[in-house]
């Protein structure tokens, strides 16, 4: 009757000190994060775990929205691959988004995010799929020619090995040249939000 995986997930805040040692968060930040986690994880089913619907609800404030990227982010957070997030998974993943997290972790996470098929490289077709999804989400309409030109230009710059794909090394060099591409990998908000001054 029961999903055994549900019971393997740790529930509750068991060892904030350990989690603080293994992430960039302080113990009080972990505790503040746990309060947020409790709120998100009780939005649909109050089971101390975040499912995809609850994650989307917290992101978009509606569960009606379909988003390729919200799915990708959820799947990357879900390191146990069981379709639900325990607090540890949630805290470890968000740690990468902390302003003090190492840049290499942010580069790695963003690469995995865009490597839709998890092949170890980002291919042109994946970039097109993501551009089209982004445009559709925002209701922006661009002709296929314009989309192709944007992608051509991006590959001209990023694909320095000229093999039609962007590998991790090329990705790293691209984002180091254009730090704005990693802008959404840092939540300044996270630092402010978890500070004791936050009301």
């Amino acid at each position: 009757c029961c999903d055994l995986d549900l019971y393997k997930q740790s529930r509750g805040l068991e060892d904030p000190e350990l989690l603080a040692r293994e992430t960039v968060f302080s113990v009080s930040e972990i505790e503040a994060l746990y309060e947020l986690f409790k709120k998100i994880s009780s939005a649909v089913i109050d089971d101390g775990l975040i499912n995809k619907e609850e994650f989307q609800l917290a992101l978009f404030k509606t569960n009606k929205k379909e988003s390729l990227f919200a799915d990708r982010v959820f799947d990357l957070f879900d390191t146990k691959h069981n379709g639900i997030l325990g607090f540890e998974e949630f805290a470890r993943a968000l740690s990468v988004f902390h302003p003090n997290a190492p840049i290499d972790d942010k580069i790695e996470f963003s690469f995995q995010l865009y490597d839709l098929k998890q092949q170890g490289f980002i291919e042109r077709q994946e970039v097109k799929q993501m551009v089209v999804a982004t445009l559709a989400e925002s209701g922006m309409n661009l002709s296929d020619d314009v989309i192709e030109s944007i992608i051509d230009k991006t590959f001209e710059e990023a694909d320095t090995k000229h093999d039609g794909k962007i590998d991790k090394e090329e990705w790293r060099s691209l984002v180091l040249r254009h730090p704005s591409l990693l802008k959404n990998m840092t939540l300044q908000y996270l630092k402010k939000w978890t500070s004791p001054l936050h009301s």
């Binding site: 917290a58 982010v73 970039v127 908000y189």
Partner: peptide, 26 residues
């Protein structure tokens, strides 16, 4: 309107699904 000179990843990074700060908003 996205200019053709825009990097595709710049455009992608504007997606609402990648804006995790909204997790912290009520």
């Amino acid at each position: 309107m996205a200019p053709v000179t825009m990097n595709a990843f710049e455009l992608i990074s504007t997606s609402q699904g990648l804006n995790l700060s909204s997790l912290f908003e009520k």
